[in-house]
Computed example of a mutant assay.
Amino acid sequence: MRLNHLDFHVPDIAETADFFIRHFGLKLKDLRGNNGLAILEDDSGLEIVLSHAIAKFGTADQVEIGRQTYHIGFILPEKADVEAVHAGLIVAGAMLSGPPAVMRGGWLFYCTAPGNILVEVGWRPG
C-alpha cells in the first residue's frame, strides 16, 4: 500500500499551488474550475490536492480557524538542498521558523505555506 494523495483546504488555491510549485518542485497535474481545485504531483506520484473547504467536512480551513492543526514534511537528498530551499524562501519573503538546525537526527527548518500550512523541510543522514 502507498499513500495516494493529501487534500488541503485553503482559501486561495492559486497562491498555495504556486508556492509548492516554485519552492518544492511539485508539478501541476490538473486545474479545475476558476481557482476551484488544483492537483499537484511530486516525483514519486504522490498528489497534493488543494481545494476550498467543503461543508460536509466542517467548512473551515486553517486560515479561518487560525491554527495549524497538522504539518507536512519534505525530505531532501542533500543537506545543501535544505540550505538552497531555505535561501529561496527567504528571498520570497516566506514565514520561516528560523535557519536550518539540527533537530530529531536531521537538519531541518519549518515554514508556513499560504493557507497556513506548516511545512517541515529537512535532510537526514542515510
Rank of each mutant, 00 (worst) to 15 (best):
K27E: 05
P77K: 15
G122P: 04
E47N: 13
N116Q: 02
T59I: 14
H9G: 12
V49G: 02
I65W: 05
I72T: 05
H5A: 09
I90E: 15
P99T: 15
P77Q: 09
E41S: 10
F24Y: 05
L37D: 01
G126F: 14
D18Y: 12
I13F: 04
A14I: 09
I48H: 00
S51A: 11
R32Y: 12
P11S: 08
P77G: 09
A84D: 12
Y110N: 05
D18S: 13
G33P: 11
A55I: 13
N35V: 02
V49M: 08
E15A: 13
G88W: 01
P11Q: 09
T112A: 06
I54D: 07
P11F: 10
E83F: 07
D12E: 08
I54F: 12
L50K: 00
I21T: 11
G106S: 14
L28T: 15
F8Q: 01
S97R: 13
D43F: 05
T112N: 10
F20M: 11
D7I: 10
P77H: 09
I65F: 02
M103Y: 15
G98D: 03
I39N: 06
I54T: 05
Y70P: 01
F57H: 10
C111Q: 02
G88E: 03
I65P: 09
A92M: 09
D12S: 03
W123I: 07
I117G: 01
I72N: 04
K56G: 04
D61W: 00
G33Y: 06
G36V: 07
E41W: 06
N34D: 15
L118G: 12
H9L: 11
Q62L: 06
T69I: 10
D7R: 07
L96P: 02
D43E: 02
M95H: 12
R22V: 08
G36Q: 09
E15V: 04
I54M: 15
K27V: 10
L28Y: 11
A55M: 11
G73A: 07
D42S: 10
E41M: 10
L37H: 12
A60C: 14
G36Y: 00
E78W: 00
L118M: 14
N35L: 08
S44V: 11
D12F: 13
L6Y: 14
I48Q: 03
V63P: 05
G98W: 05
R104Y: 13
V91S: 13
E120L: 00
G73F: 10
G25A: 13
I90A: 06
K27A: 13
L96H: 02
A87G: 07
G93L: 06
V119Y: 12
G58F: 11
A53M: 01
E47Q: 08
D43W: 10
